[in-house]
């Protein structure tokens, strides 16, 4: 297990480094960053002054090493436009995004696990087909379109929920549904497959032969084993939601990390954009590492793989 952990940690570190390199190079992808900061109508002398002030005139490798050293100390520089340290802004916004991600994953699990179990208990029944339909629709429907549909019905037509903001729990209902529904199919299919597999196993047959009641067999014996891969999938999906909430936070005007990312792109606030991408990527890498280690801990066969 130790060798496996070390190997996985090494891979995670390499991925994080690669992400940092790509993130840093973002600054030059959309053109000269000095022009981006100077904005429309700036004079050549203003642009040159900005280039010198931010050190864009230094060799790129020097800029990268400097930036990486700062990032390792938690210093991502200052936001061009919000005029605060980027780290402060990110840590102020992160809780909102984590709350949204948690609500969304909670919604996805509450919807997907019962549906997956019911589909597995009655395979090929109408219920199974209904669950399949939910899964297909969830995967096929673009998140932004589903979000707008929710706004149209729950916000505009029936006026049940507020559309924008993050002041109260009601503000999180539509975004959590929109974000959570997208990951529901994966969780539901994994639950269904896991329960089906476990229900066909010998120990379940033994449990039934002992005369245990079907709910006891299902929930106490079958589901407990079938749910293990779902837990690790949920961890990875949670990471995906933190990064994937950009669209949802923008549509619902939630002041989280995703919305901050969108704001930064619009304002060409490069230090903030770089830091968000790096922070989200590192969180995602860590959650994936956690899921790998959890799976390996639960299933010794994976450690040898």
């Amino acid at each position: 297990m130790l060798a496996f952990t070390v190997k996985r940690l090494g891979v995670a570190l390499l991925v994080a480094l690669t992400v940092s390199l790509i993130t840093f190079s973002m600054i030059y992808v959309s053109g000269d960053p000095a022009i981006a900061i100077a904005g429309e109508g700036a004079r050549a002398s203003d642009i040159e002054a900005i280039r010198k002030f931010y050190g864009f005139d230094r060799p790129i490798i020097v800029q990268y090493v400097d930036w990486l050293a700062g990032a390792l100390r938690g210093d991502f520089g200052r936001s061009f436009t919000l005029r605060q340290p980027v780290a402060d802004i990110i840590f102020a916004r992160l809780p909102v995004t984590i709350l949204l991600g948690a609500a969304a994953i909670g919604f996805a699990l509450v919807l997907a696990i019962p549906l997956g179990v019911l589909a597995a208990v009655r395979p090929n029944s109408m219920l199974d087909r209904f669950a399949l339909t939910v899964a297909v629709v969830g995967q096929a429907m673009p998140t932004f379109w589903f979000a707008l549909t929710l706004i149209l019905w729950l916000g505009v037509t029936w006026r049940l929920l507020p559309i924008t903001g993050s002041d109260t729990w009601q503000h999180f209902v539509m975004p959590a549904i929109a974000l959570g529904y997208f990951v529901t199919p994966a969780v539901m299919r994994l639950t269904r497959a896991g329960v089906l597999e476990v229900l066909a196993s010998d120990y379940i047959r033994t449990a039934r032969a002992k005369g245990l009641r079907p709910p006891t067999v299902l929930f106490k014996h079958a589901l407990r084993n079938a749910i293990i891969p779902v837990v690790s999938l949920a961890a990875v999906q949670f990471g995906f939601m933190l990064g994937g909430s950009i669209v949802i936070e923008t549509i619902f005007q939630i002041n989280g990390l995703g919305y901050l990312a969108w704001e930064s792109i619009q304002r060409k606030d490069l230090p903030t954009m770089q830091a968000i991408v790096l922070v989200l990527a590192v969180i995602y890498v860590l959650l994936t590492l956690l899921a790998d280690l959890l799976n390996a801990f639960l299933d010794p066969r994976l450690r040898a793989a």
Binding site: V156, P162, I251
Partner: peptide, 18 residues
């Protein structure tokens, strides 16, 4: 003054009177 990034959301908020 409020910032609302998405054009559809702005229209929806206008329709609700927010």
């Amino acid at each position: 003054f409020r910032t609302i990034k998405d054009a559809n959301t702005r229209s929806a908020e206008l329709m609700t009177g927010a």
